[in-house]
C-alpha cells in the first residue's frame, strides 16, 4: 500500500548552492569575530551559526519536507535548552559575585612561563611546564595518576601534604614532645574529628591521612607538625587542612596526642 512516495528528491543544484553558502558563512563568522561588538560578540556569532545550522537542517537533512510532528521535535528541545540557559542566568546573573571565597586562576596565571608557548606555535618545543609537573607526579602517592592531577595538585591537594612535609625535612631538627595527651585528645575530638578519625570515631575524608600514618612517619618531626598545624597554608598553599587558630600550647597537646599512635 505504498501509494505515497518515500522521501523527496531535491533539485541537484541546491546541494552545491548550500555548500557554497556554508563555506562563505564560515569565512564570514571568522571575519565578523575580528570586529568587536562588545557584549554582542556572542550574539553575532550565534546568529551566523544559527543561519548555517538552519541551512543544513533544511536542505541537507531534508527538513524542508518534514511534517509538523518532526518539526515539533526540532523546536521543543531548542526551546527547552533556551529555558535551561535562561533559568541558569536568572540564578547566576542575580547572585552576589563579590563574595567568592576563592578566585580561580586561568591556565596562564598559573603558568606564566608557558603563557605564550602554546598560544600560536602549536608545534613549538617549550616543554618547561610539563617537566615541572612530572616531578610532582613522581612524588605523588598514586592519587593523581592522570595528567590533569599533575597540574592541579596544588588545588586538589590534600594528598600532597606528605610531599610538602618531606621537602621541609632538612629544616626540622627539634624532636621534643611536651604536651598534655588528654587535653590533646579532648581537642581532637572537637576539631580534628571533622576530617580525621579520633579514637576510631568520626569521618575519614579522602586526603586526610590517619593519625597513625603521620605518627609513624619518621619524616614528620614534631617541629614540622607544629608549623603545619599552626598554619597549613604556609607549609602547603591550597591544602584542604584549615588553619584552626590554635595556641602554641594547644598545638603541643595535639602533637602529644597524635604521638600516642606511634607504634
Amino acid at each position: 500500500m505504498s501509494e505515497h512516495k518515500m522521501g523527496h528528491i531535491q533539485d541537484f543544484s541546491i546541494y552545491i548552492k548550500v555548500l557554497l553558502a556554508l563555506i562563505g558563512l564560515t569565512f564570514a563568522t571568522v571575519l565578523v569575530s575580528l570586529v568587536d561588538f562588545g557584549i554582542f560578540n556572542t550574539l553575532v556569532a550565534l546568529l551566523v551559526a544559527f543561519i548555517k545550522a538552519s541551512l543544513v537542517v533544511l536542505y541537507f537533512m531534508h527538513g524542508k519536507y518534514e511534517d509538523r510532528v518532526t518539526w515539533a521535535f526540532v523546536y521543543y528541545p531548542i526551546f527547552l535548552l533556551m529555558t535551561l540557559i535562561g533559568a541558569l542566568f536568572l540564578d547566576y546573573g542575580f547572585r552576589d559575585h563579590t563574595h567568592f571565597a576563592n578566585i580561580p586562576q586561568s591556565y596562564d596565571q598559573k603558568h606564566p612561563e608557558a603563557a605564550h608557548g602554546a598560544t600560536t606555535e602549536e608545534h613549538g618545543d617549550s616543554h618547561e611546564a610539563v617537566e615541572v609537573h612530572s616531578e610532582e607526579t613522581a612524588t605523588d602517592d598514586g592519587h593523581s595518576s592522570s595528567p590533569a592531577a599533575a597540574i592541579e595538585s596544588s588545588d586538589h591537594a590534600a594528598p600532597a601534604v606528605d610531599e610538602m612535609i618531606e621537602s621541609h625535612e632538612v629544616e626540622s631538627q627539634t624532636t621534643a614532645i611536651h604536651g598534655d595527651i588528654e587535653a590533646g585528645r579532648a581537642k581532637a575530638k572537637i576539631l580534628c574529628i571533622a576530617c580525621h578519625k579520633v579514637d576510631g570515631n568520626g569521618n575519614e575524608l579522602p586526603g586526610a591521612p590517619p593519625f597513625a600514618q603521620t605518627a609513624n612517619d619518621a619524616s614528620k618531626t614534631p617541629e614540622l607538625l607544629r608549623n603545619w598545624i599552626k598554619n597549613p597554608q604556609e607549609v602547603k598553599a591550597g591544602s584542604l587542612m584549615p588553619n584552626l587558630g590554635l595556641s602554641d600550647e594547644e598545638v603541643d597537646n595535639l602533637i602529644a596526642y597524635i604521638n600516642t599512635y606511634k607504634k
Binding site: 611546564a129 595528567p147 590533569a148 597540574i151
Partner: peptide, 8 residues
C-alpha cells in the same frame, strides 16, 4: 604543553 582538561 600541560594544557589538560583540569587546567582551568
Amino acid at each position: 604543553h600541560g594544557i589538560t582538561p583540569g587546567s582551568d
